[in-house]
Amino acid sequence: MLGSGLLQGLGVTAKNFVGSFHDPARLTTTEYPEVKTKLPEAYRNFPFLVSENATDPMGTLRCVACQICEKECPPQCIFIEKSKDKKPDATGKLQLFPAVFDIDVSVCMSCQICVEVCPFDAIKMDQDFEIATTDRFTGLMLDKHALAKPNSYFHEIHPTDAAEVDGRLAAERKAAEEKAKAAAAAKAALAAAPKPAPAALAATAKPPAAPSAEAPKTPPAA
């Protein structure tokens, strides 16, 4: 009969009206500034730079200014300048560090490609989305001081990822130490033996921070 569909529709809206008072599935609103939704661990917003130590963020940046992320960034919002001198990195090896590391977050599209291509686990995705500012030129151009955040913060926002990264870095550090030890032993052997062993020389020439084979990340470009 004419109108039965309309009456059914009225029934549905009435059900939803009543349901919005008692059924959590029918009132999904979170009233934002007072109540905040729990962000999923995978949530990503803009990138930040990981530093090992919260007290000395600039001295312990993992970034070695290899400029891979700058090259791979699709909207090209990263600007890096290499340092002139070297500093010891997490594994104790002397590395370059970024003299300038800027990210223009008004251009950044949070695609995470910089994180994926970084061989040093130095850049990670943040979860801070309340970065609105009245000054869009300098307020959204983040330099390395604004970008640097300690590893503990990384643990806080991405615990699984951070634990995996730390484990891998620790393994690498251990491998590097063993390699250094082996190299020292080889050197000692070299000093003892009259002729140099070519294999041992090749081992010392290899970069000590080469990632282990299990790591899903590709090694830095040769």
Binding site: N16, R26, T28, P40, E41, A42, Y43, R44, M109, S110, C111, Q112, I113, M125
Partner: peptide
């Protein structure tokens, strides 16, 4: 609004998997 209510559930799934609701990459 009903459509968006349900869409939100799917977007939540996308977000917890890929990190972003709409720009999944």
């Amino acid at each position: 609004m009903y459509a968006f209510r349900e869409r939100e559930k799917i977007l939540d799934l996308f977000e917890s998997l890929s990190g972003s609701r709409m720009m999944c990459n």
